[in-house]
Design a protein around this nucleic acid. Structure first.
Length: 207
DNA sequence: GGTGGGATTAGCT
DNA sequence: GCTAATCCCACCA
């Protein structure tokens, strides 16, 4: 894998970035240790024209990170219980993002098991609320930068970043990028904005 | 100033 | 399949 060192990766349409994020790695260095997951399932949310998107009704205090720069994180609390992790994908003031719905655990698996209080690796990160718990992602990461900023600065206590696969690392044998309807929403159900690695066993639901 | 609902999950029936 | 857990904030009064 190769760390992202500039925001150029996050240029393009939200759909393109969603597909591009599949196979990438999400890396969290926390005081408890490092956890790494491979992104296998995402959903796009498209600003004003998308009724299921938090940005649909305009900018508020809660969703303001979504209106920030592409390549930042948007983390919000859902049902008062779980956190969802999103990657901002549009230019400032637009309000589009990609929700990460499932990860394939890559390293720091013992730490993930501790955080989740379960041992089944297939269930560690197989849902948006599950993966934030396993990775130790929370509100402290809202609006944080997901590429690696210049190394001269003082390292953060808790840093979240994305790395891309190199060469043939992106897709494994038996995997292909598939697209379908989004899950768990009541508005704009028909839009085909769910992207996942079909054939991967770590999805929240088969696609 | 009160209230309703949500991009979910786990545990029980 | 059903439901409790539990919090922020948009919306309405």
């Amino acid at each position: 894998m190769q760390a992202l060192t500039c925001p150029a990766f996050f240029c393009g349409t939200t759909e393109k970035i969603a597909a591009k994020l599949l196979g990438c790695y999400l890396i969290h260095n926390s005081k408890d240790g490092q956890t790494v997951g491979r992104i296998v399932e995402v959903e796009g949310y498209l600003s004003q024209q998308d009724e299921a998107c938090h940005a649909h009704r305009g900018q508020t205090k809660r969703n303001s990170a979504m209106f920030g720069q592409a390549g930042h994180a948007y983390v919000y609390l859902i049902y008062g219980v779980h956190y969802c992790f999103n990657v901002v994908t549009a230019a400032k003031e637009i309000g589009e993002a990609v929700l990460v719905r499932a990860l394939e655990p890559v390293s720091g698996i013992e730490l993930m098991q501790q955080r989740r209080k379960i041992s089944n690796i297939r269930k560690l990160c197989n849902g948006p609320g599950c993966l934030t718990r396993a990775m130790g992602i929370g509100p402290q990461h809202n609006n944080c930068v997901l590429w690696q900023e210049d190394s001269g600065t003082v390292p953060l206590a808790s840093s979240l970043s994305i790395a891309r696969p190199v060469g043939r690392e992106k897709l494994r044998r038996g995997e292909r990028i598939a697209c379908g309807k989004r899950i768990g929403i009541s508005a704009a159900k028909e839009l085909p904005l769910r992207f996942a690695l079909q054939g991967n066993i770590y999805l929240s639901k088969p696609i």
